[in-house]
Amino acid sequence: MRRRTLLGAAALAALATGAFAQDDKTKVGFIYVGPVGDGGWSYEHNQGRLAVEEHFGDKVETVYQESVPEGADAERVMTQMALSGADLIFTTSFGYMDPTMNVAAKFPDVKFEHATGYKTAENVSNYSARFYEGRAVQGLIAGRMTKSNKIGYIASFPIPEVIRGINAAYLAAKKVNPDVEFNVVWAFTWFDPAKEADAAKALIEQGADVVLQHTDSTAPQAAAAEAGNVITFGQASDMGEYAPMPRVSSIIDNWAPYYIDRVQAVMDGTWESKSTWDGIAPGMVEIGEISDAVPADVKAEALALKDAIASGETHPFTGPINKQDGSAWLVEGETADDGTLAGMDFYVEGLSGDIPN
């Protein structure tokens, strides 16, 4: 926590009597790209904030701003939080990266944590989850359960995080079902229920009986429920209100342990800039309950894959794997390095369509 200097006898007396007890609180801010009630990405980050409050009690004060667009608005909100006395600010969307760096440069005494980005500074850390590990488990279930062999994927923005997820899901589905085809629709939004619903309906009309998503609302689940005989997967949160059908499982982002750890570091004066990228093994990526709509043997196979990824026995990107154009990428038994995964800008062989610029 930043030190606050009190001047004068009156101030010293106030400190002695506890009148400045409020100042002893560590103030932690959170900025969300969607509403806290989105049922997905922002909801889970807010659950992490609530966990911080529960863990630290009156030692912390948390504040948040929801539905903050990426860009100039984000920079304004971050600046206001810093000016209001925040000791630590979590900025929880990829598009907040440059605004975070800009504001952090102006407030060197404030600590910043940026989610899913790659830039750091003396007072800026970044953190993300290996979502692609969960996508592989989803891909296995999708490949086993599709009857049309057509799987739809609603993608948000063409950044490495999203491309990794598409590739991981496809490879896992293809491994258990060589006839499977993926159709990717780019929504160019993180949270827009109308766009997400339209994308899901378009995929279903094209024959997809499985829809995966890297967008944050439950609109695709609702569209699938209306269509019938289509399965979906929760994104970032359980979305269990749509279980056992169409939502048959989910990826759950568990941010609470990380948030508690980083707040504690600020309190202890041990906070340092670092990059964190955790997955299933540390618990940052969880696999939501696999519903009874999934056959028992498929459920067992999916859980076995989850355990193998957690133990390090299996890596979702293990060769032989070629790039979409047929050029070699990973040879037999070779696994992808983190640097390539972090900057992934290509589809693997078998996926159709282009990645937008």
Rank of each mutant, 00 (worst) to 15 (best):
R4N: 04
L83D: 13
G134C: 12
N123A: 13
P316T: 07
N149I: 09
M1A: 14
E113M: 11
A300M: 04
F157H: 09
P316I: 08
G269T: 04
L88P: 01
V184M: 00
T62R: 01
N357K: 12
G152E: 08
I141M: 15
G228T: 03
V36P: 04
Y170K: 06
A265P: 12
N123W: 06
V60N: 09
I141Y: 09
Y127N: 01
A105Y: 05
P356A: 01
P356K: 02
G343N: 09
Q213P: 03
Q221K: 04
E113W: 02
E113Y: 03
N229I: 02
I166M: 00
I252S: 04
R2P: 09
E54A: 15
V110W: 07
V110A: 05
F191N: 11
P69R: 09
M284S: 11
A82K: 08
R262A: 05
L341W: 05
L83V: 05
P316K: 11
A187D: 13
D24G: 13
V124I: 10
D192C: 11
E313A: 15
T120Q: 14
D198R: 14
D216Y: 00
S273P: 00
P158W: 07
I280Q: 10
L88H: 07
G95M: 11
G228F: 02
E226N: 04
T79G: 12
Y127H: 08
S291I: 01
A310E: 10
D98L: 12
P282S: 14
A222R: 06
R3K: 14
D307Q: 15
E122I: 10
A202K: 14
A169E: 06
T26A: 14
A19K: 12
T340G: 01
V33Q: 10
E196V: 13
D261L: 09
P356E: 04
P246F: 03
D179W: 01
A14F: 05
Y259G: 02
N126G: 01
N183K: 15
P295N: 10
V230R: 03
G350L: 02
R247Y: 00
G319Q: 00
V331T: 13
R164E: 11
D354A: 15
